[in-house]
Design a protein around this nucleic acid. Structure first.
Lengths: 144, 144
DNA sequence: TTGAAAATATTGAATATTCAACAATTGAAG
DNA sequence: CTTCAATTGTTGAATATTCAATATTTTCAA
């Protein structure tokens, strides 16, 4: 039974927030070399399968609310990293695609992100990392 | 060696963000019963040791930037949940204290938070939870 | 002791996010 | 068929966060 007088540092919600904050900050720092926020990297990465993704689908995948995504996509369209196309099968939907410029940028970003993963592997260990990933996946699955 | 063409769902940074988002959303939902954002619960919890905590110390502990904390504290002072006192030993510092009203609210929030932890324990399992906490603590430690 | 640098907290302007309302399209029941 | 509810995406206003600049106090070297 969890104790209500336990320090906040023992709460799973807090540990997740703290770890996320730290890792995200590191990633942000690397991606800032290309002047790109983490969310834009996620968007490019998801779209880099070349398929069209609807806004709703994309919002889920990149962990953003719909209006926030819409506005971020507006910027990325201005930067010609992605483009919109109406879904011919369901005209309510907008399908997002990555541009050639987006693909080039995505490659650079991927390698910066991989740098970070490797840095984590070094300091945190191979075994711990894969075990942590496994547990996080299970937690996410069990939360639906 | 991490692969740069791996899907985003295999990146530790993404899994952490996703898990954090989900768990935080659940907690947010419970705390909304008292109309309090998660960050305010953290603040109350940290201050509930009765000691005075400087703004910088508090910002670290509750995972907020300084200006964001200042403005949130302004609101909480208006709500008489906490109060400011100048540190007599270092007059640059402001020491934050929890009020009686804050303590009462904090108790209610604690029990809502414990509800959530117990819900996680049920669906995710005792063993996985403590193992995950351990790994997260190690990750945080290894990131400094 | 003095004066420059560091530490601490706050402020205001710029930026980003969220909430609620809206418009357009589709689905589905009668 | 027709109409009404549900789905999808965007917009504008309200709110929150962040960045850079500021004010105050302390520290420390000369």
């Amino acid at each position: 039974m969890a104790k209500s007088n336990a320090p906040i540092t023992e709460h799973l919600a807090y540990l997740l927030a703290q770890a996320n904050r730290e890792i995200n900050r590191q990633l942000e720092l690397r991606l800032s070399k290309e002047g790109v926020p983490v969310e834009q990297w996620r968007i490019l990465k998801v779209l880099s399968d070349g398929d069209g993704h609807s806004m709703g689908e994309l919002a889920d995948a990149v962990l953003l609310n719909h209006p926030t995504l819409t506005k971020m996509i507006d910027r990325m369209v201005s930067d010609t990293l992605v483009y919109r196309l109406q879904d011919p099968n369901d005209r309510r939907k907008v399908l997002m695609f990555i541009s050639d410029r987006g693909k080039v940028l995505c490659k650079k970003l991927n390698s910066l992100a991989v740098d970070q993963e490797e840095h984590i592997l070094e300091s945190y260990g191979d075994k711990s990392t894969s075990e942590l990933k496994r547990l996080l996946e299970n937690l996410i699955d069990s939360s639906n």
